[in-house]
């Protein structure tokens, strides 16, 4: 074992589950070059995982989609699992979510399937230290930039992106509800739609479809109708933007959204509610409601 201890700490992916990537807070400030921000789809959960293990906010973690991740630790360390709640087993012993947990060298972590939500975050003290691409360790699934999605056998080195050891034992976490409400700010292209478009958006629940991914949550429900048949010149879009393609069925853009889009955006989901959108699973219903006003730039109910 002396050989192993001389090597720097790393973890080995035994099984990635349906889909798992390395994510941090993404690469902001490059959109004018056609490069989207990317980063964790549910930023709240990434930040929480890092806080629980005493990492710097920009440390990279593993974003696990629908559970199924199995990881072996070569060195002692500390982890915290946040986001979509999954059964967790550490070397055969059940452990809890939203709490820092000490890990022994050789330990095996099994992340089961989540009962609710889509994305679970494995934060590890020190952060995942794969080479950064354009300042970020995030995988942009649309552009194919950043570390490859994890496969069985992937070894991930751990870094030193940490501060003081954590002092928190457990973070309270709101339960994921069956029919979440997302607050929406109207615009920028509300005037491209018929006058009743926003009323339609608020009126009924929308169902999340199976072709949802890190690029966007695709929905099925009452269609929004355009007032004009003109073609929208390409314009920049933002995460949370609710784009209405010709079908009238909305798409909520998530972290890996294209930098520009050619269909009008009816409204934008409040930044604070985007993590909720990222945790909606196919078949689930969600609702939109207007964000009333802005206080310090943030929408309130």
């Amino acid at each position: 074992m002396t050989g192993a201890s001389q090597r720097s700490a790393e973890i080995a992916i035994v099984a990635p589950g349906p889909f798992a990537t390395v994510q941090d807070l993404g690469r902001p400030g490059l959109a004018h070059l056609g490069i989207t921000r990317s980063g964790a789809a549910d930023r709240h959960s990434l930040l929480l995982a890092n806080r629980l293990v005493g990492n710097l906010t920009g440390a990279a973690a593993i974003e696990v989609t629908y559970g199924g991740l199995i990881v072996r630790f070569t060195h002692p360390g500390m982890i915290a699992v946040t986001g979509a709640p999954c059964p967790l087993e550490l070397s055969g012993r059940e452990i809890g979510m939203y709490a820092p947990v000490d890990v022994q060298a050789g330990a095996l972590l099994r992340v089961g399937a989540p009962a609710r939500g889509v994305r679970t975050y494995l934060g590890i003290r020190g952060g995942v230290d794969v080479p950064a691409v354009l300042g970020s360790r995030s995988r942009d699934t649309l552009a194919g930039i950043g570390p490859e999605p994890l496969v069985a056998g992937t070894r991930l080195p751990l870094g030193g992106e940490m501060s003081d050891p954590p002092t928190v034992d457990l973070a309270p976490h709101a339960r994921y509800v069956d029919e979440p409400e997302l607050r929406v700010l109207a615009g920028p292209r509300t005037d491209w739609f018929t006058a009743d478009a926003l009323r339609t958006l608020w009126a009924k629940a929308y169902e999340v479809t199976t072709d949802s991914d890190r690029v966007g949550v695709r929905l099925r429900g009452p269609a929004m109708r355009r007032r004009t048949t003109a073609e929208l010149p390409s314009e920049a879009v933002v995460a949370g933007g609710i784009q209405i393609p010709p079908s009238g069925q909305p798409v909520i853009f998530l972290a890996d959204h294209p930098v520009t889009g050619g269909y009008p955006v009816l409204g934008v989901v409040a930044t604070e509610d985007l993590p909720l959108a990222a945790q909606c699973r196919p078949g689930q219903l969600l609702r939109f409601r207007p964000a009333r006003r802005l206080v310090n730039g943030l929408p309130t109910r």
Binding site: H32, P233, A236, V238, T271, G297
Partner: peptide, 22 residues
């Protein structure tokens, strides 16, 4: 302002809401 993104007829001006406001 955190990001400026020009396009065909628009410039997106992204900002940090803790520093400035609309």
């Amino acid at each position: 302002v955190t990001d400026l993104v020009p396009a065909a007829r628009t410039v997106l001006v992204a900002f940090d809401p803790t520093t400035t406001g609309p």
